[in-house]
Design a protein around this nucleic acid. Structure first.
Lengths: 398, 398
DNA sequence: GGACTTCTTTCCACCAGAAAACCAATTCGA
DNA sequence: TCGAATTGGTTTTCTGGTGGAAAGAAGTCC
């Protein structure tokens, strides 16, 4: 009749209404929260809130917590919260050499972790490694969903269309893993995953728009605008890389002098510090030397910090955000040269601009894996059904 | 009771429902369009479409046009369109020295234009000039609303909080003009206005996310993401300015070597061409010389074009858009060095990225003023009421 | 203990949207 | 030339989500 001329499947499950989904999301994101606050936040009447939240209570997904803090007059609030027991997720960060996984609850709290060196980079081998890793993490728990984040291009949360680190093209990793695991699997770009995690459970909770910048092996960049993670077909291409930052800086392998890759990545800092010190230096060692006051190492990191600050200014100007989350394994930099970073970032912004909010997530590899778990959680929530049948678990049926 | 604890005004008029507004917007943006297409675009059933569009027909706001083009089998479509007669808008671009205004219809088609040199920059004097300009433009027509765009910071579409070109701070220009004109007046930042116009009536109609970059007296930057014009408190600060683009370029007045202001603005090109040619050169003259093959002038413009291309690449990477609209009085550059611009933009993007779509709006000052008109149109539409009273005009009452 | 305040639920009317049946206007084919 | 097929649009009827009013609940304050 209308728009259904192309044979559409017969609508498997009654999904959550839009408001019900927003309610679940708000309770999950904003911890114990009273119905009044929820109403203001979601623009819903108290009547609607009662109606919408009842099915969640019936299914045991929400609990009321007693609120000790409010001391004012009037009836005390009974804040809502999600029940954190029983539902577990696995998030995995897949890199060129290893897979790092965490077991989390509904809010990406890390309950356990494990890692595994990849035996090879073929799809079959990686799938086997991932299955083993997930088995190890979920030995004692039942896992509701698994998220895997990769540096590269992903479409439909299922297919790795391009992953240069692994040399993959158009690999349907989700199908391969689901077949072996019997649990929903979501694949997502690593920075997009991290952005999703920051948006729901991290620094992004307070800001509708923010950017995520990671440094480590490469420079990663993600963007959230108006509460939506921006996910384009270019997301996996390393858009934060090769941004010119320092005309006098070293040259990256692509020939750009002083670009973000040449100034910020671990290998760039290692090679620059090694060049000045006249010997091979590890990244952690370079940081330690600088922290101990070695002038050469410190100079390298300070130049790096200034470049990072300039990049932060560029991003906040051009993406029109005033909050930025810095993360990644290379963010140990922050502890040593935060002053240079902040100063360069300020210098690159208009003095009349709103104050810049820099949030540093020093979780390193763990943050990446938690990002993957966040993707799994978000997907699970979106697929949630609330049939009145009391025998059901309230979680998606497969 | 709910969210209304802060005394809110008693809700003056029943506004359009969200779907009705979306319908009006879609018909306005996408010209004559059949109900079927509208249903697909707005995700509405044909039944809803019939119900929603009836009041618009009753009020004479929509017309059905006979469609000659469709030749297929079945009943021919009767596309909907807005009636273009009778409703007129004025858009004004206010600069440091003059006000340029256009009279437009509902789709910002330019029906007339006028300009006026500002007698002085005091608020009273500028208001008087604007009133005279609007009077000149609307001599034979009744104007539904007036939009004014200024380079600077504007809040609430009414108050100019900061306009360095005019030396203004916290000037309620909307109130001042409405008092004199008796017609709704909207004030908006110039780039935001231009972005709004491109979104509804220009290159942005096809893209949900795009950037707007203008060069002229300064470098202007605006962003539309997911169909929303991004408007932060920093929008009026010239976020596209002072972006480092060429380490060997000339130095701007703020001391940045080769920044966007030093490479792209009219004064920058004039001074650089003047320096090389050894005499004063106007902007148009510099362009003409380059167009005629003068190697020195051409060199200046080519450097400028390469810088512009680099800026385009930076913007599309960091704002995650693949469409960009180039506009402003200085875009005559495009006709001479488009090759350099495109090449530099391509070089700054990942070779695997989606193809970049550059749209050049060479309307110059006229585009600015039409942007202001677009703001007035959008506001008028948002305030539209459709009371069943047949005596009403269907346009907002004041 | 009662007045007051605030949070939450119950009840009810309302409205937007959809399904299905129906009407309308054209092309195609015999 | 006239019906069948096809596509576009409308009317009717139904349903589910929504918010307002008022009642109920659970505290504090005097």
């Amino acid at each position: 009749m209308f728009g259904n001329t192309d044979a559409s499947p017969p609508l498997q499950q009654a999904p959550l209404s839009e408001s019900a989904l927003a309610l679940a999301r708000a309770v999950l994101m904003h911890g114990p929260i009273s119905r009044g606050d929820l109403g203001r936040r979601l623009q819903l009447s108290p009547a609607s809130l009662t109606r919408l939240s009842r099915p969640f209570f019936d299914r045991g997904l929400f609990v009321e917590v007693s609120d000790e803090s409010t001391t004012g007059v009037g009836r005390p609030t009974r804040p809502l919260d999600v029940r954190m027991d029983g539902r577990r997720f696995v998030g995995i960060k897949l890199t060129a050499d290893e897979a790092f996984g965490v077991l989390t609850d509904l809010r990406t709290t890390e309950l356990g972790s494990a890692e595994r060196t990849l035996a090879a980079r073929t799809v079959d081998s990686v799938v086997a490694d991932l299955v083993a890793l997930i088995g190890e993490l979920s030995a004692t728990e039942t896992v509701a969903a698994v998220g895997v984040s990769v540096g590269g291009n992903v479409t439909g949360a299922r297919v790795v269309t391009r992953a240069p680190f692994l040399g993959w093209r158009d690999v349907n990793l989700a199908d391969a893993l689901e077949e072996r695991l019997g649990v929903p699997v979501l694949i997502e770009n690593d920075v997009a995953s991290l952005a999703a995690a920051e948006q729901w459970f991290g620094a992004g909770r307070r800001a509708a728009s923010f950017a995520v910048l990671t440094i480590g092996v490469g420079v990663g960049y993600g963007l959230v605008v108006n509460d939506a993670v921006i996910s384009t077909r270019n997301s996996g291409l390393g858009l934060g890389g090769h941004v010119p930052l320092d005309p006098d800086g070293p040259v990256c392998e692509a020939g750009h002098p002083g670009c973000s890759d040449a100034m910020l990545t671990e290998s760039a800092i290692r090679s620059e510090a090694g060049r000045l010190l006249g010997r091979e230096v590890g990244y952690a060692e370079a940081l330690a030397l600088a922290g101990a006051g070695d002038p050469l190492a410190l100079g390298v990191l300070q130049a790096s910090g200034r470049a990072l600050g300039r990049l932060v200014a560029l991003i906040t100007n051009l993406a029109m955000v005033d909050t930025i989350v810095l993360s990644g394994e290379g963010m140990g930099l922050w502890n040593i040269v935060s002053a240079e970073i902040v100063q360069a970032a300020r210098a690159g912004r208009d003095p009349e601009a709103t104050p810049l909010e820099i949030s540093v997530d020093d979780g390193g590899t763990s943050s990446w894996a938690r990002g993957a778990a966040a993707v799994a959680i978000q997907h699970t929530l979106a697929r949630l059904t609330l049939d009145p049948d009391p025998r059901e678990t309230g979680w998606p049926r497969r």
